[in-house]
Every structure is written in C-alpha cells, then in structure tokens.
C-alpha cells in the first residue's frame, strides 16, 4: 500500500520538475527565436507557468510538513500572473515604438509599423 506521504512527494516532485522544464523552455525560446516579437512569447507564458508550478510545489511542501495552508506563495503566484501580461504589453509597445525589425514571414501590414507614421497618434495609452 502506497502511503499518503509518498503520493504527495511524487506530486511535489512532478511540480518541481515541470516548473523547471517550463522555465528552461521559456529561456530557450528567448535565445533561439528569430525576432523580438516571437521571443516575447516564451518568457511571458512558459516562464510564468514554470515559476507558478514551483510555488505550488513549495506550498504543498510546507502544508505537508507544518500543517495548515500557507497563503504567501499563493499571493506571489497571483501577483506574477497579474503582472506578467502587463509587462509583456509594455515591452511589445516599446518595441513597436522603436519599430524593431520583424521576421520576413510576419504579416505586418499595420499602421504602427509603417515608416511615414506620426508616432504620437498611434502610441495609444492604456491606463488601468
């Protein structure tokens, strides 16, 4: 018979390795993809989930050892999931503002990237 602790240990080990793997893939995307806009995808999605996985593992570990539910990890996770899209949005905006080069296969017929643009009109502002 497999005990409760063994199962929980397996779950925590799985979350730790999955988190590490996701973060590593995100960083791999950051180094290997061809242009900035594509590189933006790796870190914003995979790294956030990777760190989320590690935090969930830590939460279950401390709950298992010391009893009770610890909320601090939960707060960090929620904070990361709220802030990651915001910083990605701002990074994409600053890249568009500087008109960084795109991969030739990108369909980029948009007014933000046309050369004769008046920049003040297109750099829309998001307040939240």
């Amino acid at each position: 018979m497999i005990g409760f602790y063994t199962v929980m240990e397996g779950v925590i080990a799985f979350f730790l390795i999955a988190g590490g793997a996701f973060a590593f893939i995100g960083a791999l995307g950051l180094t290997h993809l061809r242009d900035f806009y594509m590189r933006l995808h790796g870190p914003t999605k995979t790294t956030t989930l990777g760190v989320g996985c590690v935090l969930i593992a830590a939460m279950s570990y401390f709950s298992l050892l010391h009893g009770g539910v610890s909320f601090q990890e939960m707060l960090i996770t929620i904070f990361l999931f709220i802030t990651a899209p915001v910083s990605a949005h701002l990074l994409a905006k600053s890249a568009l503002h500087q008109k960084l080069p795109r991969d030739p296969r990108t369909e980029d017929d948009i007014e933000e990237l046309r050369e004769d643009d008046d920049e003040e009109e297109t750099s829309g502002e998001r307040r939240s």
């Binding site: 933006l40 995808h41 709220i82 990605a88 994409a92 829309g124």
Partner: peptide, 18 residues
Amino acid sequence: ASTITLTPGTVSANLRQD
C-alpha cells in the same frame, strides 16, 4: 488583454487611442 497574453499563442501589443 491579459487573458490574450496568457493564453493561446498570442500577445496583446497595443491598444489604439480610440
């Protein structure tokens, strides 16, 4: 916009002025 960034292979990049 946050949902779009976190989900299916898309990143929101700009909200136009209007």
